[in-house]
């Protein structure tokens, strides 16, 4: 029995070409070969417009690869339909801007996937929602709409919405963008807890893929790193490989932001 059968990849892309979300006729990444195994924590870095979001959308099965194949939990995303809903719900996606539903409150946003997928009334979903909001320190903001929230709370609400169905794979699109250092620290610690197995998820380790435009906050010995550069996906490996990389793209993603001088 080979390793793939024992431990199938959570996400597996083979010679995949990734299309742009806004225009599916444009290809942003070509020939992506990438396997995400259960329990791995990947950080995929790239400059803005390098295709990070599109790569995650493809991994979530929301965008079809223009060429090649993308399998999620062993299921070809081309074939994702109603019958494969259970596989899709094993993936949680946190969008870069949160993409919360503007007409709903934070609590309603978080409750919606649970209520829809399990056909629950608001009262039936309330205990699980309240517990998750409490865990993410969102309880004081439960009745606010997204427009009345600061960016850090919006991103937490989006994370809570993605976690309510207890996914096995969590995809986060540039989760640290626009957040302060304190929130960085809180989020990185929380993601680490999820990765190692949070008690709310029964101690089950979660597979995590996060995209970023800055490698530095993600420095951690247990994570795996990749970079997107000139329409290519380069797997770097552990943090030591990132530091040792000579590629200008990696160096740029490791560099301190330059001060604006007049």
């Amino acid at each position: 029995m080979n390793e793939t059968t024992i431990n199938p990849a959570v996400v597996e892309m083979r010679e995949a070409s990734v299309s742009a979300l806004r225009d599916t006729t444009l290809t942003v990444l070509e020939n992506v070969n990438w396997s995400v195994l259960p329990g791995e924590f990947w950080v995929v870095a790239g400059q803005p417009q390098s295709g990070k979001s599109d790569l995650l959308m493809t991994a979530a099965g929301l965008l079809l690869p223009a060429r090649g194949s993308c399998r999620v939990f062993g299921c070809e995303t081309n074939a994702f339909g109603e019958a494969q809903l259970a596989e899709r719900l094993r993936v949680g996606l946190v969008f870069a801007g949160g993409q919360l539903f503007s007409q709903l409150t934070v609590a309603e946003n978080v409750a919606l996937p649970l209520r829809y997928q399990k056909n629950l009334s608001a009262a039936e979903a309330a205990p699980a929602v309240a517990a998750l909001l409490e865990m993410l320190e969102l309880t004081p903001f439960a009745d606010r709409t997204p427009a009345n929230l600061a960016a850090q709370w919006r991103s937490r609400a989006a994370l809570a919405r993605a976690l309510i169905l207890k996914p096995e794979l969590l995809l986060l699109d540039n989760p640290l963008a626009g957040l302060g250092t304190r929130t960085h620290q809180w989020l990185l610690t929380f993601l680490d807890q999820l990765w190692r197995g949070h008690e709310w998820f029964g101690g089950q380790p979660m597979t995590i893929v996060a995209s970023t435009d800055d490698f530095r906050p993600w420095r951690h010995s247990g994570r795996k790193f990749a970079v997107l550069d000139e329409k290519k996906f380069f797997e770097l490996g552990a943090w030591s490989a990132v530091e040792a990389a000579r590629s200008p793209a990696v160096k740029e993603l490791l560099a301190e932001p330059q001060e604006f001088s007049s």
Binding site: M57, L62, R88, L93, Q99, L100, F101
Partner: peptide, 9 residues
Amino acid sequence: EVEALEALG
């Protein structure tokens, strides 16, 4: 928001 709905199944 439509992509968000699809992502949530």
